[in-house]
């Protein structure tokens, strides 16, 4: 087994599901959302490079072509810009496409359609046309995926009006946010993380949606506020759980769930108590989610701060392919814990 898949497997086993109820995996939760929507809404269709291949998008779309037919679940030509525009045109005329990519890196080929078209059409025709389009991709960190197969590009899209950006961190959220994305009338980008795919968690059956722009507390604590999403939030939780056990350090850990729209209120609410902010993100620290949250707090909640804002994102460098360099590149629960300790001790 590949080193990173082994790691993901171990994480999945050692993490106990929280609460009572039916426990399924992250990919099962995602597939369940798709099945529910394909059954409920004839406007929904799925497409993407390899949605019907044996891999089936980490298993998320596996078997769906057999269930719903090749007309509604289909493989595409390797034409990211074209297919993004085609999905946009289909959404403009009454359909609800869910377009899958194995990696967010491939979305960079589609920026013209995403940024110049899909996100602007509703505005440009004064609200008469909407674009209910979901674009799903999973950050491909690990396995030596390297500079063009492991990027987290949410920061590049954050400033584009008209887009929504969703970054789930649990199976429950993955399903509820995907259901919400399909029901949403706007272009929604879902950025998953490959390392979360085997996680298990309590997931209710049936349709439920999680509102966009509403963060949630994953931990409540005293010493600082940690804000983040997706896999980095899981690292932050591991770090704070260990620090609590070892040193009694506690934090409010806020999962934003969606980075656009962004829940400002929950951040300010927590900061009013803790006065210290750490932002973590899977993407580059510069100009991305870390930078935006930091700037927002400096602009609107400076009076709540007792210490400088800290951010943990990726360094201002491409993601390396090699194993050793990767270890230096990515934050870990250990490096996050180190930063937390510095912040709490006032260093």
């Amino acid at each position: 087994m590949l080193w990173d898949e082994k790691l993901v497997e171990e994480n999945a086993k050692t993490k106990n599901p929280l609460g009572e109820g039916r426990v399924i995996t992250y990919t099962q939760a995602l597939q369940e959302a798709l099945v529910l929507k394909l059954k409920q809404d004839s406007r929904v269709f799925l497409l993407g490079q390899g949605v019907d291949d044996p891999g089936g998008m980490f298993g998320v779309t596996r078997g769906l072509k057999e269930m719903f037919g090749a007309k509604r679940v289909f493989d595409t030509p390797v034409s990211e810009e074209g297919m993004t525009g085609i999905c946009t045109g289909a959404a403009m005329t009454g359909m609800r496409p869910v377009y899958f990519h194995n990696r967010p890196d491939f979305l960079l080929l589609a920026f013209n359609q995403l940024v110049n078209h899909a996100s602007k059409i509703h505005y440009m025709d004064a609200g008469k046309t909407s674009v209910p389009l979901v674009i799903w991709s999973a950050i491909g960190r690990g396995w030596g995926s390297g500079p063009q197969h492991s990027q987290a590009i949410q920061g590049l899209l954050l400033s584009v009006p008209g887009l929504k950006i969703v970054m789930p961190s649990t199976p429950y959220d993955a399903k509820g946010l995907l259901l919400g994305a399909i029901e949403d009338n706007n272009p929604v980008i879902i950025i998953e993380h490959r390392w979360l795919m085997k996680q298990q968690g309590v997931v209710p059956e049936g349709i439920y949606t999680i509102p966009f722009g509403k963060g949630v507390y994953r931990r409540r604590g005293e010493h600082l506020t940690i804000v983040g999403t997706s896999q980095t939030l899981q690292l932050a939780l591991a770090a704070i759980d260990q620090l609590k056990a070892e040193e009694g350090i506690t934090a409010d850990v806020i999962d934003l769930r969606t980075v656009k729209p962004l829940d400002e209120a929950i951040i300010f609410e927590s900061l009013a108590k803790t006065g210290k902010l750490l932002v973590v993100d899977t993407g580059w620290a510069m100009g991305g989610v870390c930078a935006e949250v930091g700037c927002l707090v400096a602009e609107k909640a400076f009076h709540l701060l007792k210490a400088p804002i800290r951010r943990i994102g990726l360094p201002d460098a491409p993601s390396p392919a090699g194993y050793t360099l990767e270890q230096f590149y990515y934050p870990t629960d250990v490096t996050i814990a180190q930063t937390i300790k510095e912040m709490v001790r006032g260093k």
Binding site: R72, G85, I86, G89, M92, G94, N112, N116, T129
Partner: peptide
Amino acid sequence: KSVGMMGSSAIVAGAIPLATGSALSSYL
């Protein structure tokens, strides 16, 4: 939209995939 003038793009070729997507809708 009331006359079926669905979209135009100021990016050269930008409307071509949009129109193709509209045709995909009709097919679906």
